[in-house]
Design a protein around this nucleic acid. Structure first.
Lengths: 217, 217
DNA sequence: TTGACATTTAAACGATCGTTTGATACAAAC
DNA sequence: GTTTGTATCAAACGATCGTTTAAATGTCAA
């Protein structure tokens, strides 16, 4: 039997520790021995459960990264659903909040954007999966939401570039924590995260050409 | 003698090829054998000229990355000096242009932002040097330039967050080429780069709260 | 209790890693 | 011509890498 009480503990422990280590150090810098040692299991467990190291990496994206991205996306959706009538400000703030101050813990958020940044700078086999299953649909959703509330309509390409611009900030303020903390002299506590959400929201709203601001949601 | 005709060819070849490979694959994913093989020299040359692999990596930043960052910075400066009277639009466009369409070749630009992104996500010993010698002074310069022309004054922290926001786009549109190309369906040719400069400039100017736009410089 | 199957284990495999060695080639200094 | 010091070379070092093996252990059905 693959699992009796509904969970394969060793397999799950390997996935958890592997994700942390891959996010921190990158694929090549993490050895199978380091993973199995941290996961407190035998060296051969990785090859037994996942075939090889590369498959483990891909499985981390399938069973950890993608579900987490889905949580962020649903946080964004519910944030919008909570509002009665939508506006540019509400959509943008919901977006910034979902990524910078959303459902993820601080560690999760860091891991998440580290893995994503890694795949963006040097895509592996995981990228195609992530792009098609997560990024592209999400961008489409944000694009549609913004398009439905935006006062000054823009073309499809312009809309995409605008979303890129917003997304660039969201990603940057997550993965470049070290640099941001160093240069601002501020820790990444909840107060600073709230400030970053405000920064992304206001900067993006003006960037989108929204004239009148609304009060914070 | 360390060099007779004014240049140590092997040493320079190693630095060039090492930078390309480190940028493409990351530190751990590149072996000393791969470097020396591509640089067409003996395996022991790395240890002879740089002591060890880590020192070679640091020397790449000192003798390749930092000078290139300086070229970008001076491109920004000269672009400003070329203008008679400065304005928000001119400063922001000069900034975007220097990084996205500036003095670097396409390959150089990619390498440059790949190495930088790598150091930002997982800083090595090179980061301290880069932060103090390059990033911090440059941010200070941009901050001062913007402050001197900005119509609506803001506090120091707000200014820093704004520069982060602009810089996030600049960095993103460079390192996330693959994703951007894939989702927009456009190649990174000079026409698209010009469009990106325009996007960063306009989005940032509105983001900074500059009301009146000026025509392109 | 027995047989079948899933999982874990210790040990080893060959390959590759960064680094070191000692010999050799070559130039300028004496 | 001899010495001195730089640079390159093939070869090897021990360590670590991902992966495989075969035996041992655990678990449930028959």
């Amino acid at each position: 039997m693959s699992q009796k009480n509904g969970e394969d503990l060793t397999r799950e422990r390997i996935l958890d520790t592997a994700e942390v280590l891959f996010a921190q150090k990158g694929y090549r810098a993490v050895s199978v021995r380091e993973i199995t040692s941290a996961a407190e299991c035998n060296l051969a467990a990785v090859n037994y459960h996942f075939g090889n190291k590369e498959n483990l990496y891909l499985e981390v994206f399938r069973s950890r990264w993608v579900p987490r991205a889905t949580r962020v996306r649903e946080s964004f959706r519910k944030s919008l659903a909570r509002q009665g009538s939508l506006s540019e400000a509400k959509v943008v703030r919901a977006l910034a909040q979902a990524f910078v101050d959303g459902p993820l813990s601080d560690d999760e958020r860091l891991r998440h954007s580290q893995l994503m940044t890694r795949e963006m700078t040097q895509p592996t086999k995981a990228f195609k999966h992530v792009a098609e299953q997560v990024i592209q649909p999400f961008f489409k959703e944000v694009s549609d939401q913004l398009d439905s509330v935006l006062s000054n309509k823009v073309g499809e390409e312009q809309m995409l570039l605008n979303i890129f611009s917003i997304f660039a900030m969201v990603l940057y303020f997550n993965f470049a924590r070290v640099a941001v903390s160093r240069l601002t002299g501020r820790k990444y506590d909840s107060a600073f995260r709230a400030l970053l959400v405000e920064q992304i929201t206001q900067f993006s709203l003006r960037g989108l050409g929204v004239e009148k601001m609304e009060e914070q949601g």
